[in-house]
Amino acid sequence: MELQTDHINQLLGQIPDPEIPVISIVELGVVRGVSMEGDKVIVTITPTYSGCPAMRTIEMDIFNKLKDEGFEHIEIRTVQSPAWTTDWMAEEAKEKLRAYGIAPPNEHINQRVRSILSDEVTHVQCPHCASWNTHLTSQFGSTACKALYKCDDCLEPFDYFKCI
């Protein structure tokens, strides 16, 4: 049984995130668990953001992958709790993001201790030239999980995977 769930986990690890294809849905932390009930595979996933439009695609990708690998009965469950956090992202995944041109999320700073209205107190490193001399252009970016930054040294704009 354990061997089988390990095998399924491995298969899920081959499914790229639809928006950021350099990391897998397992590395992103979207897959929360795999279990078996008889011959039925149950995959539990959680959304990064409530309205993340990639969730449907992720469900479909999981379903198709497992179907292709010969699994007949597949159920995909979505859970909201515990809420997804960037802290779940694997270290290797952060390196892959950087190489892809997206600044990975910084270590999470406990949001409760900061003022409600102030920005995250973070310095974001440019994924292109590694400079720390960057500034926030917009809290909201091309997908729900990213913010827009600009490097003040190489002048390139870039995406930052924001902490949540």
Partner: peptide, 17 residues
């Protein structure tokens, strides 16, 4: 409670904006 936990993280960004 679970939905609130999720939503609150998102709202924090909205409010700052």
């Amino acid at each position: 409670a679970a939905l609130a936990e999720k939503s609150h993280k998102e709202i924090t960004y909205h409010l700052r904006h």
